[in-house]
Each structure stands twice: as structure tokens, then as C-alpha cells.
Amino acid sequence: MQKPFLLRKKSVCVLVISILAIAGFVWSTASGTGMGALAHSSDADPIPNFIRKGDLIFVPLHSPLRDRLMVQLVSTRDSARALELPAQVEADPSHTINMVPPVAGKVLELKVGLGDHVKKGQLLLVMTSGDFAQAAADQQKARDTLKLTKKVLERQRGVQEAGAGAGKDLEQAESANIQAQAEFSRADTRLKSLGIASGVSVDSSGRRLNIVAPNAGSVTALSVGVGQSVNDPTASMMTIANLDNVWITANVPENLLSSVKVGQPVAIHLPAYPDALLKGSVTFISDILQPDTRRALVRISVPNGDGRLKPNMFATASFAIAQATAPVVPVSALLMNNDDTTVFVETKSWTFSRRKVELGSEANGTVRVQAGLKVGDQVVIKGGVLLND
């Protein structure tokens, strides 16, 4: 009778021991002890790249970002910036001559072509003109009259000295000679204005009027041909420009005129000579603005002894404009945040804050900062994009 009881007692003991063992395992697992806890503690928690604390970003020790971020001190730059404007080559107006016809007539011969270089006194063209023939005839008649009056005057003086002549005859001879001199001077001046030197005898028909170059230069414009009639005394037949010195004319916008001064140095680049850098200085600033473009003409005088610069060539004029001292940062430090330009500033060791900046001009990989930074700030110049959320 007692054997079954003992069996039940052993079964109850085994059940109680099993329950206690399971409960102990569960408790040890939950409390972080035992084999389960050891296995868990062997896996270390990963180190975050950075930790955000409000508006600040902290990069903890052993973070991989510490090897990828580069911080640099904000410096200053007060060097001049370059203002680049379109320009073109022009002949110097003070050395440019428009050849207008001295009289109406017709072109008989044309001795030069467009682009030719001419010397002073070189024959340009030959004209025939009725007005020129009249002027030549007037000079010839005035010369003959002057010779005659001189002879009459000398004769009357001889007679007067011999005591045989009347005083009024000498006076008349002197008056006639003075009038003849005045008439010859008028006719000779008229002929000189047509290009004939004083004292040069011309044929009375005046069929050939030679037009010569008043100065050395190049024919930059030509508007007549052989057989063409020229009746407008104000219309240019050709233009001769001395190109030993040319102008580079730039168009400066109204809002930048205050930055340009006479005598200011200018660097000039031309597409025709991409490897060449020309230097000059501002010699002229127009007193008026062009009404259609609201720009002023600014001219730079440049030597052109080799003749490489041709009128109407395109150019770029670079003006050196002084600037006040301002902080500068590398372009690589700039980050876009929505519509703002920002940089990351190190406020203390490995702690950064985002700061909005206003930018100025850019040159040589750096940009001027108008607002948002000061000299001495530490900014992230490399890897800053990794700090973005």
C-alpha cells in the first residue's frame, strides 16, 4: 500500500525540481547572467557616426567620420577681383582720317584697295572735275596777271626816277600790283585746298586731280570705284587709319561705372590669340550712356606695332577692382541646405553647427564670405556633406 505512495512522492519531487530549473534559467536569461548573457555581452554595440544634440553635431571618439573630416581656419583676402567685360578692337579716332572729295567729280583711277597699307604722300586715286579745272585756270590767270603788274610797276618806277612820269601812274601801277597779289593768293589757296601744293603748275584743263594720303596708315574703309561719280562733299571715299596704336573699347554697365577709373590697369584677352595676354590702361570713359544698353564706352589704349590687332576683333577686358578685406573659404566648404548656402563650423572639439553664409566673388578656388563667418572660425572644408541628415 505504501509503494504507490512513494512513487507519487518521487514524481512530485521530480516535477518540482524541473519547474525550479526552468524558472532559474528564465530568470538568469532575463537578468543578464548565465550563458545567454555571456553570449550577448560578446557582441559590442556599433559606434554612431555622429550624435545630434539640438543644433549641434558631435562626432564621438572612434567614429569613422573623424578620419574623413578636414577642418581649416577662416582666412582673409583683400586682393583685387577681376571684372571681365566684352570689348572689341577699334582704330584710334585721333589717327583716323576720312578722305572726302575736295570737289565734285568722277573717279578716273583707283590706286589702293581695302586693307592696303599706304605711306604719307602716296597716290590714292585720280579724279576729274570741272570745279578743279576752274580753280586751276583761276590760279594760272592770277599768276599771269601778277607777273604783268610787276613789270608795269617796275617800268613806272624807272620812268618816275627819270623824272618823266606822272605820280598818279606810279600809284595806279602799285595798286594794280597789290590787287594782283591778293587775287593770286586767293586762287592759290583755293587750289591748295584741293590738294595741289603752292607754286605747282597744273594744266589749264584740270583733267587730273590727284588725291594723296595725308598720313601713313591702312585703308580700313573704301566706298568708291573707278568711273563712280562723287557729288557729296561730305561722303567719305575711303578711311585711312594708323594702327600703330589701337583702342580696346569695353561696354561697362551703369552699376559698375564707379569701379572704373582713368589710368586703371586692364588685362586683355582675344579669341584670335588665346595664349597672349595684353596689358593696357583706361584712357577714356564716355560722359554719356548708350540709351539702348545703359552702358558706357570705356577705351583702353594698346600698342600695336606688329599689326596683330585688327579693327572689329572681339576681346575681353579684365579690370582689376579693389575690394575690402573679407573672410574667404574654399569652395569645397559650401553646402546647400534647401535654398540656403551653409557651412559647418566647429564650435568646440569635434562639435559642429550649421551656419548660413552670404557669398561674394569667387577666385582661385576660394570664395569671399560677406556675412555668416569671421576670421578665426574653424570650418569643415572636406567631408561636410557626411554631417547632413
Score class of each variant (00 low, 15 high):
Gln2Asn: 09
Lys3Ser: 06
Pro4Arg: 08
Pro4Ser: 06
Ser11Tyr: 03
Val12Trp: 07
Cys13Met: 11
Ala30Asp: 08
Gly34Leu: 04
Gly34Thr: 05
Met35Val: 14
Ala39Lys: 14
His40Tyr: 08
Ala44His: 09
Phe50Thr: 06
Ile51Tyr: 04
Ile57Gln: 02
Ile57Arg: 09
Pro60Arg: 04
Ser63Ala: 03
Asp67Ala: 13
Leu69Gly: 07
Ser75Tyr: 01
Ser75Val: 12
Arg77Asp: 15
Ser79Tyr: 02
Arg81Val: 11
Ala87Gln: 06
Thr96Gly: 09
Ile97Pro: 00
Asn98Pro: 00
Asn98Ser: 15
Pro101Asp: 05
Pro102Asn: 09
Pro102Leu: 09
Lys111Ile: 02
Asp116Phe: 03
Lys119Ala: 14
Thr128Leu: 01
Gly130Asn: 12
Gln134His: 09
Lys150Tyr: 02
Val152Arg: 14
Arg155Ala: 11
Arg155Glu: 10
Gln156Asn: 10
Arg157Leu: 12
Lys168Gln: 11
Lys168Ile: 13
Ala173Arg: 04
Ala182Met: 09
Ala182Asp: 12
Asp188Phe: 02
Leu191Cys: 08
Leu191Trp: 10
Gly199Asp: 03
Val200Tyr: 01
Ser201Arg: 10
Ser201Ile: 09
Ser204Asn: 10
Gly206Thr: 02
Pro214Val: 06
Asn215Arg: 14
Thr220Pro: 09
Gly225Ser: 15
Val230Pro: 03
Asn231Thr: 15
Thr234Gly: 04
Ser236Thr: 10
Met238Ile: 03
Thr239Met: 11
Ile240Pro: 09
Asn245Trp: 00
Pro253Glu: 03
Lys261Gln: 13
Pro265Lys: 07
Ala267Glu: 14
Pro271Lys: 05
Ala272Gly: 00
Asp275Phe: 01
Leu277Cys: 00
Ser281Gln: 14
Phe284His: 12
Ile285Gly: 02
Asp287Glu: 11
Pro291Val: 08
Thr293Pro: 07
Val298Ala: 07
Ile300Val: 15
Ser301Ala: 15
Pro303Ala: 10
Asn304Leu: 07
Asp306Met: 01
Lys310Phe: 06
Ala317Thr: 08
Ser318Gln: 10
Ile321Val: 15
Ala324Trp: 00
Val329Arg: 04
Val329Ser: 08
Pro330Gly: 05
Met336Leu: 14
Asn338Thr: 06
Asn338Gly: 09
Asn338Asp: 15
Asp340Ser: 12
Thr342Ile: 12
Val343Gln: 05
Val343Ala: 06
Val345Ala: 07
Ser349Asn: 12
Ser353Gln: 15
Gly365Met: 08
Thr366Ala: 11
Gln370Gly: 00
Leu373Trp: 06
Val375Cys: 00
Val375Leu: 06
Asp377Ser: 07
Asp377Ala: 05
Lys382Cys: 01
Val385Gln: 12
